[in-house]
């Protein structure tokens, strides 16, 4: 399951202290991002390979910038136009890129477990940037970071995750991350996209939208994929929006300081309306900013060489 200490493929094996360390470091990284000159050379001379076997804009750009702010060079690889379309295997592709000497691999792949498979077969650190329906650890960490930023703590909070739970790598990483803290997690979504067996996690399942949202300190919305309709999981996007979205709802029942989160991209008028995304409760754009800071912290933790002082003092 990845090599402990070498990779970040899952939030599962991290301790609460490991997570807090990354979040604390991300706080420092965020300060760097706010400087006029957003560059600290702590990863100068390092090369990070961003291997995106599945399309991504936000995550790929975020990792790319995170590396660049720390002075590393990056190579960006995307599946289209690569040898993958010529039938080269995943392992072969990665081994070829590895032969060019990168210091870390950031990898997104549509198959659950693919970064775990690679991590066990390469000597350099592997960061999972999303594997199938399994995990998206950097997104999980940036979500934790954002909640902590607004609430001051992760303990004693009630967090609701709602939407297409079972196909969401974000939901899995959120649950694994939040479970290290004293949070009460509630899941809400159609039965067809809920985990068949939820027993591995300490979570509550809400039966109604009201029950899901009314006590929540943070609402973590998930994106519904349009393909779910063809797969018989939902009858229509319209029906999904009516029962499982926050669009066009009176949000009086929410706690006054509840925040709304979404990993993006939002399906407008389904999970959320533009008013909500751009509104007071939304922290969605801050999530994007925090994503860069958290990824800087992740990269530094995995391949930085004890030059932490430069970050906090320079």
């Amino acid at each position: 399951m990845g090599v402990p200490g070498k990779d970040l493929v899952s939030l599962g094996p991290l301790s609460r202290e490991d997570v807090e360390e990354i979040l604390d470091l991300a706080t420092e990284m965020k300060k760097i991002m706010q400087r006029p000159v957003k560059k600290v050379p702590v990863l100068r001379g390092k090369v990070i390979a961003n291997l995106f076997f599945e399309p991504s804009t936000r995550t790929r750009t975020s990792f790319d910038l995170a590396a660049k702010y720390l002075g590393a060079d990056t190579i960006n690889f995307s599946a289209s136009g690569s040898s993958i379309s010529k039938g080269e295997t995943l392992l072969d592709t990665v081994k070829n890129i590895l032969a060019m000497g990168p210091d870390a691999i950031v990898m997104r792949h549509k198959s659950s477990g693919a970064p775990f498979f690679i991590a066990e077969r390469v000597p350099v650190p592997v960061v999972n940037a999303g594997d199938g329906i399994n995990e998206h650890p950097s997104q999980g960490l940036l979500n934790l970071f954002t909640i902590r930023e607004y609430k001051g703590t992760l303990d004693g909070l009630k967090i609701t995750i709602m939407g297409d739970i079972s196909h969401s790598r974000v939901a899995r990483s959120d649950i694994l991350g939040l479970s290290k803290f004293d949070t009460e997690i509630t899941l809400f979504g159609p039965r067809t996209v809920m985990f068949h067996d939820v027993s591995p996690y300490k979570v509550k399942i809400a039966k109604t939208l009201e029950e899901a949202v009314k006590d929540a300190d943070a609402l973590m919305m998930l994106r519904i994929q349009r393909e779910r309709q063809a797969a018989l999981l939902i009858p229509s996007i319209r029906e999904y929006a009516r029962f499982y979205g926050l669009s066009h709802r009176k949000l009086d029942m929410l706690k006054s300081d509840a925040i709304i989160m979404h990993p993006g991209p939002v399906n407008w008028e389904v999970e959320l309306t533009q008013e909500l995304v751009y509104g007071d409760r939304s922290v969605i754009f801050n999530q994007v900013t925090n994503g860069v800071a958290v990824r800087m912290a992740i990269l530094y933790t995995l391949i930085g060489e004890g030059k932490y002082e430069e970050i906090s003092s320079s």
């Binding site: 659950s112 477990g113 594997d131 199938g132 329906i133 399994n134 995990e135 079972s166 790598r169 899995r172 985990f195 068949h196 067996d197 939820v198 027993s199 591995p200 996690y201």
Partner: peptide, 11 residues
Amino acid sequence: EGRISTLMGLP
């Protein structure tokens, strides 16, 4: 399908 498919994120 069960406990482990939930944990491993596999269909």
